[in-house]
Design a binder for these strands. Structure first.
Lengths: 167, 167
DNA sequence: CAAACCGCTTGCGTTTTGCAAGCACTTGCT
DNA sequence: AGCAAGTGCTTGCAAAACGCAAGCGGTTTG
């Protein structure tokens, strides 16, 4: 992040996240709880190439959006976690989901989480961010019912329906 | 937009806007009221190349985010306007500005608009969107005090201060 | 002890980007 | 009338990024 084009907030955000893959990686770690390289690569809906994934992980760690730690009890397993910085991207990702859902040809199965988060409003986002803090930063649990679990349940319910409704 | 990687709302938004220049162009049209090619190119803070600008304008028109019309009374002048789709990007751009302002090395002069919009909240965004509708879609004016003017005034006030405060 | 798995690298062809120059045309000035 | 300035955009070319497939040195598992 040496040569910056300008100090405009929107531009700077674009310089950090304005490519086709960085936010995909963050999305999968955040909403899919995919914390390991192979999982991020192979369970990716979009099919990210391993060299690109490696590059993005390195870059996001360097930018302070992810941290890389060794998995305890497994010498070569690397575990990626979100930083506070990345967790604060939740409202941005929600807005991206909201806009995409309104204006682009989304599939219902993949849009359900976006819809729930959008409808939940800022309070739900804050709960979800707190949950991410316990999962990724080791913050104490709040004891509230899990937002992630609700999102996942809705997703699976729709994935089940889909067998009957789409070929 | 033929071959899509997946139907996830975030991914689709990224496929449309996930590059280093598309949102810069929209930002300049939206907040800087730059509606012509040469102005977009030469008054760009970030220095966009003319071929990239041409490509992005074409692409954004094709995607339904901009419209291109001939300027009345000037045969070769083209005027770019935001569509409703693009106007609905306001909340997303506000979130991008908010995140960038918190986490990246912004310059105060360029961050002031982001700050005002962020602090104004959804009501201010809605007013601003209505204003964009009158400016770009020919919607009737609301008669409310102009948000764009307030943003511009704040920007200029800070640009004035800056002469004394930064070399 | 072999097979599966781990994060990641390498090689290579294709696509996108960035930079500078320029083009056909219109407008404004004198 | 004539000419400079301005209009949106194109072209040529080098550099960087991307996408794909294969594979590598190590670890863990059965």
């Amino acid at each position: 992040m040496a040569d910056l084009r300008s100090g405009c907030p929107i531009n700077l955000t674009l310089e950090v996240l304005g490519d086709r893959w960085s936010l995909i990686v963050i999305r999968d770690i955040m909403f899919g709880d995919r914390r390991h390289f192979r999982v991020l690569q192979r369970q990716s809906e979009e099919g990210i190439a391993s060299n690109v994934l490696a590059d993005r992980l390195k870059r996001l760690v360097a930018l302070g959006l992810l941290t890389r730690t060794d998995e305890p009890g497994h010498k070569q397993k690397a575990r990626y976690s979100l930083t506070e910085r990345a967790i604060q991207l939740v409202p941005l990702l929600v807005q991206m989901g909201a806009w995409g859902r309104r204006h682009l040809p989304v599939t219902p199965r993949l849009a359900i989480r976006a819809r729930l988060l959008e409808e939940g409003g800022p309070e739900l986002w804050a709960d979800f961010m707190d949950e991410l803090r316990t999962a990724h930063l080791g913050a104490p649990a709040t004891g509230k019912p899990s937002v992630a679990a609700r999102l996942q349940a809705a997703y699976e319910a729709l994935a089940g329906q889909e067998i009957g409704t789409r070929p």
